[in-house]
Design a protein around this nucleic acid. Structure first.
Length: 994
DNA sequence: TTCTTGACTTGTATTTATGCCC
DNA sequence: GGGCATAAATACAAGTCAAGAA
C-alpha cells in the first residue's frame, strides 16, 4: 500500500532524493524544517480507538488528490531502499481512508512556494560551545526561515514537481500530527457512552513494555567555559536589538535568558520604605478617584486602618485608579527615577476607603535599588568586547543581522516595534516610554524576581461540608449502614458508575484500598465486587434531574447566592490594581481522575483543610480570615518573588502543589504572555542559524551532539514537546527526549513512523519523511537497544535546553511550539485572506487555527452525540432533497398551467407561480448546501480542539492586527475571556506581523 | 553533577450558560 | 418554552523548566 503523503511532496524530488540525500541533506534541512508528508499506516491503528473515524476533511482534498502521486513516489522510494542500509522494518502499509489519516496527513496543502534562494552556508569558525555554526542567512534574501516548517512543506506542495536537484526530499511538507486520535480505528458508535477521557486513550496496545523510569547516565553537553562566555555574549546580543526593542522588552528578554546584570539592576524594585503601590481599580475606567470595593475589603472597615501606620511618603502616594489609568500614571511616573517611596498596603486600604489626591508621583518609577541604571553600562562594556567571547547565540544573532541582512532585519524589527513602542536611543528614555512601563506592575520575572510590591486578597473558599444523603448502598444484596465519611467516599465512586473508569481495574483497586482505610479492617464491606452502588447512583441522578428542573428564577437565585458567598474571594489587589483571582475555590474531595493509564487513578483525594493551605500575601495586608471556625492556615508568607496567592500539597502526590493564581486576564499573566510571544518572535531571527547548527550536527562524531541535533530537529519539525523524565507513579507518557525505541520506527528510505502517548496520554501518530542523515542517526540510536530503551540515551531536557540556550538567549524546547504555531497562523492569514465577506474571512481564520491545532496535536474527544447529530443532518438533507424534487415537479406542472400535485399527506398544495417555485428551488438548494457545509465542518473538527492553540500558542497580536487590517470585528474571533486575557495585545498596529 | 523542589504553563474534560429551532 | 447544540467557563491534570539542595 502506498504511503499517504501530503500534496507537498513533489514526485521528482522524491524520486531522486535518495541519491543526493547525503550531500544535500543539510541544505534541505535548512530549507524545510517543518516539512514532510504525513502518512499513516493502518497496522496498529486498528488496535485503538479511531478518533476521526469517519471524518471527511475538506482540506484533505489535496491529500487525496495526492494519493496517486504518493504511489508513484512510493516506488521511487523502494529503489532507494536498496541503496540505504536500513534497520527499519518493511513498511506496513496504510489504509487509504481519510478517516484513518493522522492529523498530519490531513494537513492541508496550498501554501506558498519555498524560496529557492536559501543557501546552505559554511559554518562559522566559532570557538564557542561545541556546536559549529553556520553563517546565518541573509534576511530578506530568503524569508523562508520565518515560515514555519509546516508551511514550508505546504509551500513545496504547490511548487509541484520541480526536478530541482536541491530537493532531494520534500522537507517542506507538513509534519503535523495525525488526525487519528489515538490512532484508533474504532468507529463512532463504539465510543462508550460516558467516559470521555478513557475512551480517548487506549493505552495498553501501545504502552511501552519497558519501564519508563529506567534512568540513564546523562552526558552533560557543553562546558562551563562555554556557559560563562554565553552569559557575557548574551548581553552582547542585545546590541543588535537594543535600538529596536524598548527597554522593557529587552529587559524581559534579558530576564528570560537569565542575564542578571541587565535584568536585576535595571528592573529591580526599590527597597520599599514601608511600602506599596497605588491602588488601582481595574474595573473603573479612568477614575483617579479612590474607589473601594466593599467586597474585596470584606469586613475591613476603613478609617481606623488607614490611620494605622501611615507610611512615609516622600513624594506622594497611591491613587486608586483604573487599570488603564494606571498605565498612564506610570508612564508619567517614569519621568524621573527619584525618591520612589511606595506606600504601604495599609495605606492602600485607606485609600480604597476614600482617601483621594495622593500625588501621582508615588507611582513613579523608583530609583533603582542601587541607584543606578546599571546594566546599561555593563552592557555597553560587554558590547565592546572581543568576538571570542561571544556565544553561539550571539553569533547566530549577529550573523543573522549582519551586513545588508542586518539592515533588513533591523527594518523588520523596527517595523514591528514601531507600532507599539517608541524607539529611543537613550535607554532610560526607552524605559520611560516602554509599554511595560505603563503598567503598574513590574513585569513578571523582573527585578530580582520580584513580582509584586503589595498584595491584598481574601484567601480561598472551601467547598461545603459533606451532607449525608442516607441512601443505602447494597453489599451482597443487603443495605449497609455507612458513617457519613464512609458514605461520602462511596458516593464519589457511585457517581462515576457510568464512566469509563469503571472498566479500569487500577481505578477500582486504588479506590478500594483507600476506602478500606475509612471503612476499617473489620467492616462488613470487604470486596468491591460485592458492592452495589446503584441506589446511590440513582439518587444522584435524581438530584441532578431535580436541579435541571428548577425554574429559571430558582436557578438564578442559587447563582446569586453563590456569587454573594464567593465575591470577596474573587478579587485581589496587586500593586493597587484590582485583579481577578483565577481559582479561588479549594478543590473538593473526590476520586483522582488521572488520565490514560495513571497508576494513581481512583485514589481518594481527601478534603483540603485550612491547615493544609499556605497563604501568600503582602506583608502589611491583613491576613485573610480562616473561613472555617476554629481552624487556621498552615502558614502565612509574604513572598513577592512568586505570583501565587495560596497553595496546598496535592493530596494525591504530596510532593506536588496546587496553586491559587490570578486569572488569565490579570496584568501579571498578560505580561508573562507577552514575554512568551516576544521570545518566540525572537526565535524567528535565530531559526536559520539554529537549523544550520543542527543540520551540521546530524553527522557529528559526538553521539550526544548528534542526539541533540536530531531531537532539536524533531522538536522543530514536528512540534514535539521536550519530554521530561517521569516517575513510576505517573502515566507512562513521553515527549521528544524520552521517546523509546519502540516509539519511532524507521521505514526506509527515510520515513519515521511515530507512535506514542504524549501529554495527557493523547496518542501521537505520524509518519514523516526526514533528512537521510536524521534517518540514519535514528537507526544508529536504535542499534543494540530493545523497544523500551530510550532512543536518546545521552539526552534529557536539561541538556537539550542548555544547548538551546547556547543558540539563543532564553531558548527552550517549548518555544518552538509557540514559534511554529504563531508563524503558521501569521503566514496563513496573510496568504489566504482575500476580499470577501466577513463570513469568508472568519473561515480563513478558522482554517488557519485548525492547521495549528493539527500541528500541535490538540485533540478532543468526539462528542457522545456526534453520530446522532450527523444522522440528523443527513435526514434534513434527505428531506430537503425530497422537497426539491417535489418543487421541480410542481414547477414543470405550473409551466404547463397545471395545478400542483397533492402533498404527501394528501392535502392540496398552494398553487404557486413558476417564478415563486423557482425562487423556492433556489432557496432549498442553498439550504442543502449550507447543511452539507455544516456537516463537513462538524466532521472535520470533531476531534480537533481549536481553543487550546488560541489560548496558549497563537500570538494574539497576529489576530488583532489581522482583524484590523481586514475589518473583522475581534469579537468574531475572541470570546469574552480571550478578549480579557489579551487586553495587552489590543492596541497593536494593524501592520503587525509575527 | 544529579536530584528534588517549586512555580508556572499547557491541556483536556466537565459543567454551565446561551442561543437557536421547532 | 422545551430540547438540543454550541460556546464559554471552570476544574484540575499534566506538562515544562529553573533553581537550589544534596
Amino acid at each position: 500500500m502506498p504511503v499517504l503523503s501530503t500534496k507537498a511532496l513533489p514526485v521528482d524530488s522524491l524520486a531522486e532524493s535518495p541519491k543526493e540525500s547525503t550531500s544535500l541533506a543539510k541544505e534541505s534541512a535548512l530549507k524545510s524544517p517543518f516539512a514532510s508528508p504525513a502518512s499513516i499506516s493502518s497496522g496498529k491503528a486498528s488496535l485503538v480507538k479511531k478518533p476521526l473515524a469517519d471524518s471527511k476533511v475538506p482540506t484533505l482534498a489535496a491529500d487525496r488528490s495526492n494519493h496517486t502521486l504518493q504511489q508513484n513516489t512510493s516506488s521511487a522510494m523502494k529503489k532507494e531502499k536498496q541503496m540505504i542500509n536500513s534497520c527499519g522494518e518493511p513498511h506496513s502499509d496504510s489504509e487509504d481512508s481519510e478517516d484513518n489519516k493522522p492529523l498530519s496527513a490531513r494537513f492541508s496543502a496550498g501554501l506558498p512556494k519555498v524560496s529557492p534562494n536559501r543557501t546552505n552556508k559554511e559554518p562559522n569558525k566559532s570557538t564557542l560551545g561545541s556546536t559549529p555554526l553556520e553563517a546565518p542567512r541573509v534576511k530578506g534574501e530568503d524569508s523562508d526561515d520565518e515560515i514555519p516548517l509546516s508551511l514550508k512543506n505546504q509551500s513545496k506542495s504547490n511548487a509541484g514537481p520541480s526536478g530541482s536537484k536541491t530537493h532531494e526530499f520534500d522537507e517542506n511538507k507538513p509534519v503535523a500530527p495525525k488526525s487519528k486520535k489515538n490512532g484508533s480505528t474504532m468507529v463512532d458508535n463504539q465510543v462508550k457512552k460516558s467516559s470521555t477521557i478513557l475512551n480517548k486513550r487506549p493505552v495498553a496496545e501501545i504502552k511501552s513494555s519497558s519501564n519508563s523510569s529506567n534512568k540513564r547516565s546523562k552526558l552533560v553537553h557543553g562546558s562551563s567555559t562555554a556557559k560563562k562566555v554565553s552569559v557575557k555574549a548574551e548581553s552582547k546580543v542585545d546590541e543588535d536589538h537594543i535600538d529596536y526593542f524598548p527597554i522593557s522588552e529587552r529587559l524581559q528578554m534579558a530576564i528570560l535568558s537569565g542575564r542578571k546584570s541587565f535584568s536585576q539592576s535595571s528592573v529591580k524594585r526599590p527597597k520599599l520604605v514601608d511600602g506599596s503601590a497605588p491602588i488601582i481599580d481595574k474595573q473603573v475606567s479612568m477614575k483617579v478617584e479612590p474607589k473601594v470595593d466593599e467586597a474585596i475589603l470584606s469586613g475591613r472597615k476603613s478609617s481606623s486602618q488607614s490611620s494605622v501606620k501611615r507610611p512615609k511618603l516622600v513624594d506622594g502616594s497611591a491613587p486608586v485608579v483604573d487599570k488603564q489609568v494606571s498605565m498612564k500614571l506610570e508612564s508619567k511616573s517614569d519621568d524621573d527615577g527619584t525618591d520612589y517611596v511606595p506606600i504601604s498596603e495599609r495605606l492602600q486600604m485607606a485609600l480604597l476607603l476614600g482617601k483621594k489626591s495622593l500625588s501621582q508621583s508615588s507611582v513613579k518609577r523608583p530609583k533603582l535599588g542601587d541607584g543606578s541604571a546599571p546594566s546599561m553600562k555593563a552592557e555597553s562594556k560587554l558590547d565592546e568586547e572581543d568576538d571570542d567571547y561571544v556565544p553561539i547565540s550571539e553569533r547566530l544573532k549577529k550573523a543573522n543581522s549582519s551586513g545588508t541582512k542586518m539592515a533588513s532585519a533591523k527594518q523588520k524589527v523596527t517595523k514591528v516595534v514601531s507600532s507599539s513602542f517608541k524607539k529611543s536611543n537613550k535607554s532610560k528614555k526607552v524605559l520611560k516610554n516602554s509599554k511595560f512601563s505603563k503598567s503598574s506592575k513590574v513585569p513578571p520575572g523582573s527585578g530580582e524576581g520580584q513580582k509584586w510590591t503589595t498584595l491584598v486578597h481574601n484567601g480561598v473558599i472551601f467547598p461545603p461540608p459533606y451532607k449525608p444523603h442516607g441512601v443505602k448502598m447494597l453489599y451482597k444484596g443487603q443495605p449497609v449502614n455507612l458513617t457519613p465519611e464512609q458514605e461520602e467516599v462511596a458516593t464519589m465512586f457511585a457517581v462515576m458508575l457510568d464512566t469509563e473508569y469503571m472498566t479500569k481495574p487500577k481505578f477500582k483497586e486504588n479506590f478500594m484500598n483507600d476506602w478500606r482505610k475509612i471503612l476499617g479492617k473489620n467492616h462488613i464491606i470487604q470486596r468491591l465486587e460485592d458492592c452495589d452502588f446503584t441506589p446511590i447512583y440513582d439518587w444522584h441522578q435524581k438530584e441532578k434531574e431535580k436541579k435541571k428542573q428548577m425554574s429559571a428564577e430558582e436557578k438564578k437565585a442559587l447563582r446569586e447566592e453563590k456569587l454573594q458567598q464567593e465575591e470577596k474571594y474573587m478579587w485581589a489587589i496587586v500593586d493597587g490594581v484590582k485583579e481577578k483571582v483565577g481559582n479561588f475555590r479549594v478543590e473538593p474531595p473526590g476520586l483522582f481522575r488521572g488520565r490514560g493509564e495513571h497508576p494513581k487513578m481512583g485514589k481518594l483525594k481527601r478534603r483540603i483543610r485550612p491547615k493544609d493551605i499556605t497563604i501568600n500575601i503582602g506583608k502589611d495586608a491583613p491576613v485573610p480570615e480562616c473561613p472555617i471556625p476554629g481552624e487556621r492556615w498552615k502558614e502565612i508568607r509574604h513572598d513577592n518573588t512568586v505570583t501565587w496567592l495560596a497553595f496546598w500539597n496535592d493530596p494525591i502526590n504530596p510532593k506536588e502543589f496546587k496553586y491559587v493564581f490570578l486569572a488569565a486576564s490579570s496584568s501579571m499573566k498578560g505580561q508573562s504572555d507577552k514575554v512568551k510571544y516576544e521570545k518566540a518572535r525572537l526565535l524567528k531571527d535565530y531559526i536559520h542559524g539554529i537549523r544550520s547548527v543542527y543540520t551540521k550536527d546530524f553527522t557529528s562524531k559526538d553521539v550526544t551532539k548528534r542526539q541533540i541535533a536530531v531531537a532539536t530537529y524533531l522538536i522543530d519539525k514536528l512540534a514535539l514537546r521536550a519530554g521530561n523524565e517521569k516517575d513510576d507513579d505517573e502515566a507512562d507518557t513521553v515527549g521528544c527526549c524520552t521517546l523509546k525505541v519502540e516509539n519511532v520506527e524507521p521505514i526506509p528510505p527515510n520515513t519515521l513512523k511515530f507512535d506514542f502517548l504524549g501529554k495527557d496520554s493523547i496518542r501521537y501518530q505520524n509518519e514523516v519523511e526526514v533528512e537521510i542523515p536524521v534517518f540514519k542517526a535514528i537507526q544508529q540510536f536504535r542499534t543494540g537497544k530493545s523497544g523500551g530503551d530510550d532512543l536518546f540515551d545521552k539526552l534529557d531536557t536539561s541538556i537539550l535546553n542548555a544547548h538551546l540556550k547556547e543558540l539563543m538567549p532564553g531558548l527552550t524546547a517549548k518555544v518552538f511550539r509557540t514559534y511554529n504555531a504563531s508563524i503558521l497562523l501569521d503566514e496563513m492569514l496573510n496568504r489566504e485572506t482575500k476580499d470577501g465577506d466577513l463570513a469568508q474571512k472568519v473561515v480563513v481564520y478558522q482554517n488557519a487555527n485548525k492547521e495549528v491545532a493539527i500541528i500541535c496535536n490538540h485533540q478532543r474527544t468526539v462528542s457522545k452525540s456526534h453520530s446522532a447529530q450527523m444522522a440528523r443532518l443527513n435526514e434534513k438533507i434527505d428531506e430537503l432533497k425530497a422537497l426539491l424534487d417535489e418543487l421541480k415537479t410542481d414547477l414543470d406542472r405550473a409551466k404547463k398551467g397545471k395545478l400542483p400535485m397533492k402533498s404527501s399527506d394528501g392535502k392540496p398544495k398552494q398553487n404557486l407561480s413558476p417564478e415563486a417555485l423557482e425562487r423556492k428551488i433556489i432557496q432549498t438548494n442553498a439550504k442543502i448546501e449550507k447543511i452539507e457545509q455544516d456537516k463537513n465542518t462538524k466532521e472535520d473538527l470533531k476531534t480537533v480542539a481549536l481553543g487550546t492553540s488560541k489560548i496558549n500558542y497563537l500570538d494574539p497580536r497576529i489576530t488583532v492586527a489581522w482583524c484590523k487590517r481586514h475589518e473583522v470585528p475581534i469579537e468574531k474571533i475572541f470570546n469574552k475571556s480571550l478578549l480579557a486575557k489579551f487586553t495587552w495585545a489590543m492596541e497593536v498596529d494593524p501592520s503587525f506581523r509575527f
